[in-house]
Simulated scan of single mutants.
Amino acid sequence: MFNRRTLLSASAATVAAAALLPGAKVYARGKAGSFPGDIEPRGTVGRVERLPRLDLESQQDFLTGLRGWVNKDLTKVCQDRTARILEKNGLDPKADISLERALELLKDDPILGTRWRTWISLQQATWRQLLDEFHGNYDRYMSEMEAADKAGPGTLELNPGMKLPDYTRHEIHLQPGGYVGDPFAGHVYHYGTNNFFADRNNQDELHIEQARAIPPPPADGKVRRILDMGCSCGQMTVALKERFPDAEVWGIDVGGPMVRYAHMRAVDLGVDVNFAQRLAEDTKFPDGHFDIVTSFILHHEVSTEASKKIIREAHRVLRPGGVFYPIDFFTHGELAHPKQAFERVRYWWTHRWNHEVWYYDYVNVDYLGEMSKAGFIVDQNGPPARSVYKVNLMGVKRV
Rank of each mutant, 00 (worst) to 15 (best):
T75A: 15
K76V: 13
C78I: 11
Q79S: 14
D80Q: 14
D80V: 09
R81M: 00
R81I: 00
A83C: 10
R84S: 15
I85N: 09
I85S: 10
I85C: 10
I85Y: 02
K88T: 13
N89P: 09
L91D: 10
P93C: 01
P93G: 02
A95C: 13
A95E: 13
D96M: 11
S98P: 10
L99C: 02
L99H: 04
L99D: 02
R101I: 00
A102I: 02
L103N: 03
L103I: 01
E104M: 05
E104A: 08
E104C: 03
L105M: 03
K107D: 02
K107Q: 06
D108E: 04
D108F: 01
D108I: 01
D109L: 01
P110Q: 05
P110A: 06
P110G: 04
P110L: 06
I111C: 02
I111T: 06
L112K: 03
G113P: 06
G113S: 06
G113Y: 00
G113D: 00
T114Y: 07
R115H: 13
W119K: 15
W119Y: 14
W119T: 14
W119M: 14
W119A: 14
Q124G: 08
Q124A: 09
A125W: 00
A125K: 12
A125E: 05
A125T: 08
T126E: 11
T126N: 13
T126M: 12
L131R: 10
L131F: 04
D132P: 08
E133T: 04
E133C: 11
H135P: 11
H135R: 11
G136A: 04
G136Q: 05
G136K: 03
N137C: 04
D139V: 06
D139R: 07
R140S: 06
R140P: 00
E146I: 04
A147Y: 01
D149S: 10
K150I: 09
K150Q: 14
K150L: 14
K150R: 15
K150W: 03
K150D: 07
A151F: 03
A151T: 12
G152E: 02
P153I: 00
P153A: 03
P153F: 00
P153N: 04
G154L: 12
T155V: 11
T155K: 15
L156I: 13
L156D: 02
L156C: 09
L158I: 12
N159H: 08
N159C: 15
P160D: 09
P160N: 07
K163A: 15
K163M: 14
P165A: 12
D166N: 13
T168C: 14
T168M: 12
R169C: 05
R169A: 07
H170S: 06
E171Y: 01
I172N: 07
H173E: 03
H173D: 05
L174V: 03
Q175G: 02
P176C: 03
G177N: 05
G178Q: 04
Y179D: 05
Y179E: 04
Y179C: 09
V180Y: 05
V180F: 03
D182Q: 06
D182M: 05
D182G: 07
P183S: 11
F184T: 14
F184C: 08
F184R: 10
